[in-house]
Design a protein around this nucleic acid. Structure first.
Lengths: 144, 144
DNA sequence: GCTCTTTTCCTGAACCAGTCAAGAAAACGA
DNA sequence: TCGTTTTCTTGACTGGTTCAGGAAAAGAGC
């Protein structure tokens, strides 16, 4: 896990005010990768029982804008957050239970940024989501 | 555009009952690629003024399940639908206005289904979303 | 330390895409 | 044409997320 001092360091590093809710939210994202907002609210409240859901939503937004956390939202899912940023990794998502795992980019660090025809778009990111079944759902489905 | 007869043919081809709302919804998806549900409801009502939004939602669901349309949902966007199915193409999404364009798979027909480490998942699809700015937003942003 | 200004947090309400439910209507095989 | 099954209509509702305004806290300057 990441220590409170490290978390504060991260916040100061991007010129954000250090507040207890923000430290707690950032810590929760580090401790629970791919957690949804509800889970993060719960985790934050173990430390700060009176934290409002709004503070968590606000913190997640500023942390995302500052690049300290990354927001992912696979189709049909609520928003999820992770602290691995800037390393261009992708995700596998289970169609059945929604579980998410990290997948390093197969093409190296600077990936698949090459669309065959970009229609004049200036592309800055290629996001890849692999869909399938996680080990648990896979075995559960194959023997009914 | 696709003729009503063709649309009915498509429905029968996947053993779905041919109803006026379904034909209208399927036609609207063919006529307006990447349209969201609201737009599809409007398009359907030009033809069937009394169609309920629920009929459109239901139709879109069965059409999607039958494989006649594909549902896409870039992060932060509402659901969008398109009629290009089965050819494994991807999408470019504008961060500013949300516009969507098709992009053929750069790696050929059967793509990027190879994750470096699949964590035991059985993967059946690789979805790629390119993020950037569309031509209009790109020029609008560069000269303020 | 102690103020002052600015940012952030809390309370509580609102929003909106999408879903649920029950009865009426339509599709289609016999 | 009839009867069964599916689909559509109406209307209420849900749940994640955002909006708004006042209270509290963070950090800069003294």
């Amino acid at each position: 896990m990441t220590s409170p001092a490290d978390l504060q360091q991260l916040l100061r590093g991007v010129a954000l005010r250090v507040t207890r809710p923000r430290v707690a939210v950032l810590g929760a994202v580090h401790a629970h990768p791919h957690a949804d907002t509800e889970s993060i609210i719960s985790a934050v409240r173990e430390e700060l029982p009176d934290a409002s859901h709004q503070a968590v939503y606000d913190s997640l937004r500023v942390l995302t804008n500052a690049g300290l956390v990354r927001r992912i939202q696979p189709a049909g899912s609520v928003a999820r957050y992770e602290s691995r940023v800037g390393d261009n990794h992708h995700h596998v998502v289970c169609r059945s239970c929604g579980a998410v795992s990290d997948v390093d980019c197969a093409v190296g660090d600077a990936p698949c940024l090459t669309a065959s025809d970009d229609h004049g778009f200036s592309i800055d990111e290629a996001e890849v989501v692999y869909w399938g079944l996680c080990p648990a759902c896979s075995t559960a489905g194959s023997r009914p």
